[in-house]
Nucleic acid binder design. Structure first.
Lengths: 206, 206
DNA sequence: ACCGTACGATACCGATCGGTATCGAATGGC
DNA sequence: GCCATTCGATACCGATCGGTATCGTACGGT
């Protein structure tokens, strides 16, 4: 007998709160926020709306909690990048870029959760907006640290360029061919780091 | 004779269809698609839901029609770029970038309509999705033409880089300080064109 | 064994949504 | 002047939404 063969994942064993978060993550990412009702989330989590409201109080708060988890993943990517390439900010930047590039295929059908949430939540007072804002600020801060430590001239400009490229790549991956997007984004970021590192010696930069 | 009871003749009011499109453009851009009801659109257009459905049949079709108009604006930007800088593909590229950069402030609160729509319409069968896809393809085709004509090596890579930057800039503008974003994106695109033009020391660029 | 808590199930609420039906008034072409 | 078409207004429909109330039960700490 195989009592564990109930569901593909032993989701049923996790406490309701975790199951709800897993279900929300999946549904929000694949179908959007507004499109998904709390009922659908509860059903996929094999629980009820009541449990959802007992734990999160509001759908909006559940959305915010979901984004907090996604933001934590990105933060971990920065931590890993620094841990794996200590004292090598250039490699750290590339590692972060690689994290994004490797995540692109998973975003093929649906884009960046933060961008999508921003699109779906025009209300600046929405609790999720604060999470997004902090995430963006954190990401910029970490990147700025790496670019500065790497000795890139005009580190802010470098951060902007890297940010635009990574963000744009995620957006572009949402539509067309994705496989090449990963390679292209890596080549671009490599170019940013290399070019700016070697640019210090000659050209007249403002 | 009395200029009228019913309709003020002070300014020739546009036909209902145009008023609806204007209202839809404004509301969809500022508050999103799903968040805005047909009732709200009709009211802002100073007409009724019935008129809306008589002209567009469906809210989804209205969304698609709105995006067709937005896409036409972008297409016009490409046309203008080519018309104003005939035979100078590099300048054309910069003109297109400038068009996007100058449009950033208007996107401060809400981002790119296409990206937002993509986020709000996960259903690939939605009529608007086809409009978006064609728009992206068109944009890539035009950019590829310019990059190729400019003699840039690996024009596809250049197109990817420009596309990512422009797309990413629009996304980034949605959040933080915008003023610098315009300048930064121009400097980046200038860098792409210049750097790649001078990168080929051995090949003859015609 | 007891009891407080969390959980599951269900029924319900008010609001809003996209879309339709209907009807009177205005308008423009002939 | 006549008539077909368009437009405006309103009332309505079924569905779905976020959120709440209620109630019985399963479980864990003491």
């Amino acid at each position: 007998m195989a009592p564990t063969a109930r569901r593909p994942s032993r989701v049923a064993k996790l406490p309701p709160r975790e199951r709800i978060l897993d279900a929300a993550e999946e549904l929000f990412r694949d179908e959007g926020i507004r499109r998904v009702g709390v009922q659908a989330i509860a059903e996929r989590a094999e629980t009820t709306k009541m449990a959802l409201y007992r734990h999160f109080g509001t759908k909006d708060e559940l959305v915010a909690e979901w984004l907090r988890i996604v933001a934590a993943d990105y933060r971990a990517a920065f931590d890993d990048a620094e841990a794996e390439h200590p004292g090598l900010p250039g490699e750290q930047i590339l590692a972060v870029a690689r994290f994004v590039a490797e995540g692109l295929p998973a975003l093929t059908y649906r884009g960046c959760p933060f961008v999508n949430s921003l699109a779906e939540l025009p209300d600046r007072a929405h609790p999720a907006r604060q999470v997004i804002e902090e995430h963006k600020a954190h990401q910029a801060r970490r990147l700025l640290g790496m670019c500065t430590e790497a000795g890139l001239p005009e580190p802010e400009q470098a951060v902007a360029e890297i940010t635009f490229v990574l963000e744009g790549a995620q957006v572009s991956a949402q539509n067309g061919s994705v496989d090449q997007v990963g390679e292209r984004v890596m080549r671009i970021v490599e170019g940013v780091v290399d070019r700016r590192r070697s640019a210090v010696s000659g050209t007249s930069v403002g």
